[in-house]
Design a protein around this nucleic acid. Structure first.
Lengths: 257, 257
DNA sequence: ATCAAACGTCCCATCATGTGGGACAGCGTC
DNA sequence: GACGCTGTCCCACATGATGGGACGTTTGAT
């Protein structure tokens, strides 16, 4: 099939990248040239380009190339997210099967909540408004509140005092009020949000903490407001907290942020 | 400085790759286009190209792209080697300071020993012949023998029955002889090689095993034959074994091969 | 100390090929 | 049934990737 649509420079540059990465040590231009059988000038340019993009690092003094920062960062992010999702998946499944409501998994990026996974009950007619990949403000979602409450004080303040957009008429846009809520959340271990992000929808959110207590992600159960009776809320919150705790302990100890 | 020598297609393709990896989920063509602000056709080609190179994976059914096998493999290899070297470094340092001879670290690739690190004593005039990145046959080095002896039987046989090149007049080129030596090595915990790889140079090699007992690497002390008295050999072998054991336990439990 | 081989950088003319607008078909949606 | 959105495909154009070769510097050998 799509053997057209292949961009030659990209393929060749990736070969160079791969060669460097496979060695696990600093390599020289000529060595790479010999190994790959490409023209010297070409390889030279690719090494420069890859270095400029920080996929490689150019040790100017010794004229050697090695794997760079950007590559490692990307690998780390990928690993963390993949691991998180794998560990969270069975717990999310259980929650969905128990409560028959949508369960979300999200991380915090630039004061926004980014959904990285989502499980929906088959039978319900009402579908979730968010999709995997969507973003919502941190301050208007239970996910965001749950994470915010467990952030170091400086980060928390930064978030609360950022731009607090009004999503619905119920959205809290006062920094002080948000910070007071955060205290409650920390005490209770979960956050609640009722129609603050979207009319008629309520969410219960819990943080997923790494070993050091940092909120690397959050999980929420989201349901139509009228379906969520107060006593059910408590039960669901407890279930979420339990699930989050199990996910935390199952996370690779070296989840990095 | 080198802002020339930048190959545009490569830069742009890497942006696409980065975007996909950062999401930690399956992305669509259009979404990527919107995010990066590049022409649709261009992004399309890059996604195809990256997929063809297995840096991405193209879920044809759902027309989504996600991080691919090759990317993860490279990340893993890089992590493992970097980790190995970091953990091994202080132990190698100690060995060099104790014996004032060259200490090597190597892994096995395609029946060849690849040096991934090397520490030399400052004062000695005689320099090691190998360099980081160089390759030697597995069967003519103590490093190779040390690893071979702890390989699963099938792999071991494969190595012993491959091409056994004659490096010096002492090099063993008989498969049976090599396999018998392997038994000794496994019993003693270290391998010795005297002038089999290079005239006048002897090496003592020990394997570095992961939790499952697989030899992920080997470490050797290499010295001029005449400097290595028999009783010193025993002392050095013990020191090497101890160092290797400590490296093994310090290796991240998830060293993968 | 001397010289040769090897290495990284740079230049430049050539033309392959990357480019992106636009068209098209398939699909889900209102 | 029509619209809008998606991914795929086509094509003419000129950008810019290309690679041979030259140059200055370093490395290593004698």
């Amino acid at each position: 099939m799509g053997d057209d649509y292949i961009v030659q420079p990209v393929i060749k540059a990736l070969q160079v990248l791969e060669y460097v990465a496979r060695q696990g040590r600093d390599v020289t231009l000529t060595e790479t040239v010999h190994e790959l059988g490409l023209p010297k000038t070409t390889v030279f340019r690719y090494l420069q380009t890859l270095s400029a993009a920080n996929y490689l690092e150019h040790d100017v003094g010794r004229d050697r190339y090695r794997v760079g920062r950007k590559f490692r960062d990307m690998a780390r992010v990928d690993q963390d997210l993949t691991g998180l999702r794998q560990v969270a998946q069975p717990e999310m499944r259980k929650l969905v099967d128990t409560f028959h409501e949508t369960v979300n998994l999200a991380v915090l990026t630039d004061s926004q909540v980014v959904y990285i996974d989502m499980l929906e009950p088959d039978a319900r007619a009402l579908k979730a408004s968010a999709r995997v990949g969507y973003r919502h403000p941190a301050h208007s979602t239970s996910l965001g509140k749950a994470m915010m409450a467990f952030l170091p004080d400086a980060d928390q303040r930064l978030l609360a005092e950022g731009m607090l957009s009004q999503m619905t008429f119920r959205t809290l846009t006062d920094a002080g009020q948000l910070r007071r809520q955060a205290d409650d959340v920390r005490r209770r271990g979960y956050a609640i949000e009722i129609g603050e992000n979207e009319d008629g929808v309520m969410c219960i959110g819990v943080p997923i903490l790494d070993r050091s207590g940092y909120p690397v992600a959050a999980m929420s159960l989201s349901a139509p407001e009228r379906r969520m009776k107060p006593e059910l809320t408590t039960v669901a919150a407890d279930a979420l907290k339990g699930a989050a705790r199990r996910i935390s302990t199952n996370l690779r100890s070296n989840f990095s942020r």
